[in-house]
Amino acid sequence: MNIGFEAKRVFHNKTGLGNYSRDLVRILATYFPENNYFLYNPKAYKKTLFVSNNTNVFEKNPISKFNKKFSTIWRQKAVVKDLVKDNVEIYHGLSGEIPIGLQKKGIKSVVTIHDLIFVRYPNLYSFFDRKIHFYKFKKAAERADLVIAISEQTKKDIMSYLHIDASKIKVVYQGCQDVFKREYSDSEKQQVAEKFNLPETFVLNVGTIEERKNALTIVKAIKKLDVDLVLIGKQTDYTEKIHQYISENKLEKRVRFLKGLTSEELAITYQLASVFVYPSIFEGFGIPIIEALYSKTPVITNKTGVFSEAAGPNSLYIEPFDVVDLSKKISKVLSDNSLASKMKEEGLKFAQQFNDDVIASEVMSCYQQVLSV
């Protein structure tokens, strides 16, 4: 089978959508090596985020001068000619988009929609971004033969906001990179702890430091606790609110902002953390939660929305802005060794449903379902 992918984010996005795209291509190529996987990348750069070790994965770029110059047009429409030339049987839009004209050429299609946060929380997006996102997602969901939602929550939102029938939507959870599933040696952990000056006991939060992720609530929650906080992620204007609170409450020595970690350093930091706190207001899924579970780090997260799907029955839950309850739950995890141990072990067991082989099998089942119609 020849399978094509919208691969812009495979090669150009360092975080969420890019990680999802790279991991999916990797695991499909590994578990189903009999197929060919074509990655349609609109712009080739010398520095790339993805190099496949599989001989059945091929990067495809625009060839003509026109398509190279107008790569957006190529990605949205002209790429279909290349799909036909490569005998692609099914095309997968990995981040809410598929090109126009697939049906006319007899090419089946699947599109993954990660979330519709821009509809739920329009205040977090500009007017034009909301309109563009909605138009692209709506059209892709209507044109595709099957829609993959990364959670039951996202499926509900696709049905509600895009008015797509439930029978056309399949939930396939995300996984995470293998690097978070490894056991690291004491010496490796010590090197990372020393490099980033990590305390012996600390609360960890990973993700873009923006209003929706709600990191300020964690800072407030640890104010009266004897524990430090490590925040890892790209900083935005919202970060200034956190810095202001830290300054006003003299917490400079207890809150650390880290960036520029390698994947291995991030994975080791998860394993060094005493508890992972993720009070995000809303997510399509919440990959950092999965990373924490695989790292055997206790998780505290939001009790509403998608988070219980990702964190499972043995994590602890809070209302996202309840500083007092969050403080109590952090304190309980840090002081109750038996609770922390149970959360670690049961969390790891729960995470097995996000293993590569499970995800690869479910996605391939989606492809076969579409092709059989």
Rank of each mutant, 00 (worst) to 15 (best):
P320V: 04
P42R: 07
T262I: 04
N53E: 02
D228L: 09
Y317G: 00
T208F: 06
L229D: 14
E248F: 09
K131R: 03
F58G: 04
V275N: 13
A360D: 13
G175M: 13
F257H: 05
L116C: 01
G260A: 01
A360Q: 09
F134I: 07
V333P: 06
K65E: 09
I113K: 07
G101Y: 09
K81L: 11
R254I: 10
V230R: 08
P33Y: 02
K65V: 09
Y245L: 08
C176S: 08
I148L: 09
F50M: 01
Y125I: 03
V299T: 10
I132M: 07
Y317P: 00
K47I: 00
T154E: 03
L339N: 05
I209F: 02
S160K: 11
I281K: 05
L146Y: 10
K328M: 08
K189Y: 01
Y245Q: 03
A141E: 13
K213F: 02
P279R: 08
V179K: 10
P62D: 01
T30M: 06
K224V: 10
E252C: 08
Y317Q: 00
G4V: 14
V10H: 05
P313K: 01
E309S: 01
L293N: 04
Q368G: 13
T301C: 05
F50E: 00
N36C: 07
L261Q: 05
H92Q: 15
V324S: 07
S341Y: 13
A140N: 13
I113T: 11
S151I: 03
